[in-house]
């Protein structure tokens, strides 16, 4: 809330006990702004990577075992993968208009196909293993081969993919908000804070560096936890 907008003493306060992260040109507390922004950024990252991974893993596993679908999907993949994903996201968010869900739609609209292709390759590697050939010969239905024989072996691969998708979606959001694309004007986000305060990098450096620091802490902790979880979920490390 801009309760301090007419209070000149509340402007550009350096971090203190009253304003932990200082205040900006309008007397806004940066502490409040950062956490409100982090909430938006984290929500976008989590929702977008959840959608991408669920669609990508399901379609990728079917794509990997079926040769008929493979022929069609490979052509679709070739078309979509050759257009830069950032371009697709920017064009889509321009055409659908700014907004939280529009941005998530723009992000997930085509990015699932990358995950699906990755899963296709992984599934194809597992598909030709002896135990799967034997299982197929014995008449196991395709669904069971995918969900019981193959996917449990790919847990650590999927976790690795999630751990890379989460920080990358957060970075996408920050980058787009920095450009002024994506979120609507009344939604706070870390990217918006960073772009809004970047002119103060030399005069009031705390306004720029504190949002950057929080963003870095979020992405680094998510990435490291994801990588460790991926390592831990690989049964070969359980010796």
């Amino acid at each position: 809330m801009l309760v301090n907008i007419n209070d000149f003493k509340a402007r550009y306060n350096w971090p203190s006990l009253k304003y932990w992260f200082g205040t900006d040109a309008d007397g806004n507390s940066l502490f409040d702004a950062i956490w409100a922004g982090a909430r938006t950024s984290i929500s976008i990252g989590v929702i977008a990577s959840l959608i991408t991974e669920v669609i990508g893993v399901i379609i990728g596993s079917i794509w990997g075992v079926s040769k008929k679908i493979d022929r069609i999907m490979l052509e679709i993949y070739n078309v979509i993968a050759n257009v830069p994903s950032l371009l697709i996201i920017i064009v889509l968010s321009y055409s659908f208009g700014n907004g939280f869900w529009n941005l998530i739609f723009a992000m997930t609209c085509t990015s699932w196909i990358g995950t699906a292709y990755f899963m296709r390759v992984q599934v194809m590697i597992m598909r030709e293993r002896e135990y799967n050939v034997a299982s197929k010969t014995l008449g196991t239905p395709m669904n069971r081969i995918i969900f019981r024989n193959i996917l449990p072996y790919l847990t650590s691969v999927i976790v690795t993919d999630v751990s890379m998708a989460l920080p990358s979606f957060i970075s996408y959001e920050v980058f787009l908000s920095f450009l002024g694309v994506g979120l609507s004007q009344n939604v706070p986000s870390l990217g918006r804070l960073i772009s809004q305060y970047s002119p103060y990098m030399t005069t009031y450096p705390y306004l720029f560096w504190l949002p950057v620091l929080v963003l870095a802490l979020i992405t680094i902790s998510l990435y490291i936890i994801g990588q460790r979880l991926a390592d831990a979920s690989d049964p070969r490390t359980h010796m």
């Binding site: 809330m1 956490w35 984290i42 004007q185 009344n186």
Partner: peptide, 21 residues
Amino acid sequence: FILLMSFIQPLFSGYSLSSVG
């Protein structure tokens, strides 16, 4: 800590870019 802060703190601060004064 970051998750708790970013999902609980805004409830108390009521920070919003659209409300003025």
